[in-house]
Design a protein around this nucleic acid. Structure first.
Length: 457
RNA sequence: GGCGGGGUGGCAGAGUGGUUAUGCAGCGGCCUGCAAAGCCGUGUACAGCGGUUCGAUUCCGCUCCCUGCCUCCA
């Protein structure tokens, strides 16, 4: 049996996954900054790590899954201020919306969802430790900075060196910094902003220290997997390494995983271009019953390290493929049984997933199994299909209900009327009813023996 | 300028030194009152130019093109 292999951004190669503690895995994923609804690109990243966690569990690991919530940040303060809403009330709403979006996408609830504002103490401890080690200093403006050139490994994740970074410096240099690359750990309080008392004076944390503190508190100084979006490699993850390893003098993370971007067509999705859809916006446009799994399927059928283009056509395409899988399960009732890993297609699925979560190949195995189910009408194989899909969060719905979707029309009455017409050999009437239903997005399927199934197109 | 990721059949998307990826769409057939679903069959894709090799889409070099990060960002 193939071992699980993970592409580690730190080493830029696939490595066999060896957890710190046999049989266990700790994973930390950078969650949202809750200043708005998440967009479909964010949804991709979260879906990817949901897949990772599910596969680790399916592989027998006892997983501790941590995904934080950044609930104090410039953008949050700006939004709350412009809405004239207290920050706490604003973030309560945005967090609730995030939870709702995750549920619609059938994402697992993490074992822990630390919020930055509840971990100020650990953050300050970390900053104090950094200061005592000479890695942090207080600027003239009251901010506390991390001293990048005092941390020897800086740049090892993103493969950048300080000289190149300085040459590429494009931002007005903060006068209080000793080095333009130094980043803020603690921001001195400003009027009208939330702040917490500290040995450095009242203030609030910088973004990077939040993740170092929360991950360390939840998973320990060293843990197995840290995930996030591709763009977080630099500076965010680089800075996390500097902070955590600087303070603890221990390796921070063994496997760094980064999910590639979802693009809008062939353009980068960006808030400044305004070319993005929120996850809920997309879900609202899909069938209420099928939409969540359809979007999830769309997001995961490409490899997580490859960029993916978002277009309505591709979303439809994914929906058609997914409905095909459910159609097989509707035709052949699935037997309840654990996965039989000795089946060649199950082994292929497992090997693909173990090869750095190669979902395209894993889904290919599922599709081949679907054809096998249709050919053999074997309940055992249907059960295998359903169980394999279940390992990564798919195909668990009732097929009949899934395929009928959120149809509100009284289809059954029309189907009965058509059956009567057919019996009377009034095919014109029967076909008219079918055309009428088709116009409403409903497809009829006559079964041998006279029964008629229907599904949403 | 520094560092990085890519160019695969109509579309999407894996993978491999020589054998069918897979899906969607299309086409032909079976089935069907007709459809739908399903099954069967079907498409000589691997940016270009050199090189290595018995043989390269798959390794090496060069060229062209697209694209990400270096600033908040999934």
């Amino acid at each position: 049996m193939s071992p699980l292999v993970i592409y580690n951004t730190l080493t830029r190669r696939k490595e066999t996954f060896v957890p710190l503690v046999p049989g266990r895995a700790g994973i930390y994923v950078c969650g949202p900054t809750v200043y708005d609804f998440i967009h479909v690109g964010n949804a991709r990243t979260f879906a990817v790590f949901d897949l990772v966690v599910r596969w680790l569990r399916a592989s027998g690991y006892e997983v501790t899954y941590v995904r934080n919530i950044t609930d104090v940040d410039d953008k949050i303060l700006d939004r709350a201020r412009s809405r004239g809403e207290p920050i706490g009330a604003f973030t309560e709403r945005t967090v609730a919306a995030f939870v709702e979006d995750c549920a619609r996408l059938n994402l697992l609830v993490p074992d822990s969802e630390p919020r930055a504002t509840r971990y100020i103490g650990p953050m300050l401890e970390l900053i104090e430790r950094l200061e005592s080690k000479g890695l942090a200093y207080r600027g003239a403006n009251g901010d506390v900075f991390f001293s990048v050139h005092d941390f020897p490994g800086y740049g090892k994740l993103s493969r950048k060196n300080l000289a190149d970074l300085r040459a590429g410096e494009r931002v007005a240099v903060e006068a209080a910094k000793r080095d333009p690359l130094d980043f803020v750990l603690w921001k001195a309080a400003k009027p009208g902003e939330p702040s917490w008392p500290s040995a450095f004076g009242a203030g609030r944390p910088g973004w990077h220290i939040e993740c170092s503190a929360m991950s360390g508190r939840e998973l320990g100084a060293t843990f197995d997997i840290h995930g996030g979006g591709w763009d977080l490699q630099f500076p965010h993850h680089e800075n996390e390494i500097a902070q955590s390893e600087g303070a603890n003098a221990k390796p921070f993370v063994n496997y760094w995983m980064h999910a590639a971007f979802l693009n809008m067509g062939d353009e980068k999705m960006s808030k400044s271009l305004g070319n993005f859809f929120t996850a809920r916006e997309v879900l609202d446009r899909l069938d209420p019953v099928q939409g969540g799994e359809q979007l999830r399927f769309f997001l995961l059928r490409g490899h997580y390290r490859s960029e993916l283009a978002f277009t309505p056509e591709l979303l439809d395409d994914a929906g058609n493929a997914l409905r095909g899988l459910y159609t097989a399960l509707r035709e052949v009732p699935a037997a309840q049984a654990p996965v039989d890993w000795s089946h060649p297609l199950a082994a292929r699925f497992r090997d693909a997933m173990n090869d750095d979560f190669d979902t395209p190949v894993a889904f290919a195995a599922l599709h081949e199994l679907r054809a096998e189910v249709n050919r053999t009408r074997s309940g055992a194989l249907a059960g295998l299909l359903r169980a394999l899909g279940g390992t990564i969060g798919f195909l668990q719905r009732d097929p009949e209900a899934f395929l009928k979707g959120g149809v509100t029309l009284d289809v059954d009455a029309l189907v009965a009327e058509r059956a009567a017409a057919k019996k009377a050999k009034d095919y014109a009437r029967a076909d008219a009813i079918r055309a009428q239903l088709d116009a409403s997005g409903i497809v009829l399927e006559d079964k041998p023996g006279g029964a008629t199934e229907w599904r949403k197109k």
